[in-house]
Design a protein around this nucleic acid. Structure first.
Length: 329
DNA sequence: CTACATCGGTTGCCCAGCAC
DNA sequence: GTGCTGGGCAACCGATGTAG
């Protein structure tokens, strides 16, 4: 079982875009000197003019220990397993991989930013909606800031006035992360499996595995409810792609190409028994015939009804493209 | 055994002060 | 002026202790 992922992400000294540089300097110093705690604190005081408080320094150091960059051995600080890994391969990819693996919310923030620029307030709301366990005050931007500042220091996010935007590197990451991180939480959910509450596994119609943080981000955008059926149990919801996973790999990680559907309605959508149009109205395949009360009520009877989808949540260009392949639309 | 108190560590929050 | 940063406080939480 992997160690539990960290909810709090601690900022580094040196400023919003320098976290990585500071981290590298600490790793280099610890690797060379194997300092005692006093020496490590002294090094911080000498390296950063405004830094003095031992508490403040140790908060950073202990966070780095929790992540695995640092460890203690005989009263001295040495590199932890992740520190060794990063020292051996000091690339953005390595650092991002292990930060994402050890911290909740970094990937979901990147997915959310891939849809478009966000203000710090929007980032705070996105993190809270996607990861309710974070539980911080949505009015206060501090927690959101230190997350986005890590991503800025990693070169994945840039600040543009009030807005934070994904850089090219950030976009490259999200494009592959949906699949690369597909099973990242499977072990956790299987060891704590509770069929009434388990919500982070993916058993799509075609057993498609996706990054649990992508799934969580997608579901949070729609209040974790299937807009067709009203099903709101996360274990019964799939992330359905408008432009299909197999035919349009370039849109796999695109949040405006997905919507949450109950497993039944996902299957019906993939089998082209219904679709939505550019006004988010339900269109039903005229050949679709059913004796099922559920399908009659949620699909057939709702033909032409507008679905409760937030404006712009699904890209209408994708809808048009999807529907162009259906001869009955 | 239960309920309550205590304690120590953690972490969200606020603010003074600095740099621009 | 204003936006940002580090310092420090206090609320919170789980673990442990204790009284009834």
């Amino acid at each position: 079982m992997p160690p539990e992922r960290l909810r709090s992400i601690v900022p580094m000294f040196g400023g919003a875009t320098s976290y990585v540089g500071t981290l590298e300097a600490i790793i280099e110093y610890v690797d060379e000197q194997h300092p005692t705690t006093d020496e490590l604190v002294g090094w911080h005081r000498g390296s950063f003019a405004r830094v003095s408080s031992q508490d403040s320094i140790m908060r950073r150091v202990e966070y780095l220990e929790d992540v695995g960059f640092l460890a203690t051995s005989d009263d001295r600080w040495v590199l932890g397993p992740e520190g060794e890994r990063y020292a051996a391969d000091p690339t953005t990819e390595t650092l991002l991989e292990l930060m994402c693996r050890r911290n909740v919310g970094l990937r979901s923030l990147l997915y959310a930013l891939s849809v478009g620029p966000m203000t710090i307030e929007e980032i705070g709301c996105q993190q809270l909606e996607t990861h309710p366990e974070l539980g911080w005050n949505p009015e206060n931007p501090d927690m959101a800031l230190q997350r986005v500042n890590w991503l800025r220091s990693l070169g994945l996010v840039e600040k543009d006035g009030e807005q934070y935007v994904l850089s090219d590197e950030g976009r490259q990451f999200t494009d592959t992360a949906v699949e690369a991180w597909a099973d990242s939480e499977v072990e956790i959910t299987s060891t704590t499996a509770n069929p009434m509450t388990a919500g982070t596994y993916e058993t799509a119609v075609e057993a498609r595995a996706i990054d649990p943080e992508f799934r969580a981000t997608a579901l949070a955008r729609f209040d974790r409810t299937c807009p067709i059926s009203g099903v709101d149990h996360p274990g019964l919801l799939d992330v359905a792609h408008v432009l299909s996973w197999s035919d349009y790999p370039e849109y796999r990680a695109d949040l405006s190409n997905v919507l949450p559907l109950s497993k039944t309605h996902h299957a019906a959508f993939d089998r082209e028994l219904f679709t939505i149009d550019q006004d988010y109205r339900l269109r039903v395949n005229p050949d679709f015939d059913t004796e099922s009360d559920l399908l009659q009520r949620t699909i057939v009877d709702q033909a032409g009804e507008q679905l409760p989808l937030p404006d712009g949540s699904v890209d209408t260009d994708y809808v048009v493209k999807h529907n162009a392949a259906l001869e009955w639309v």
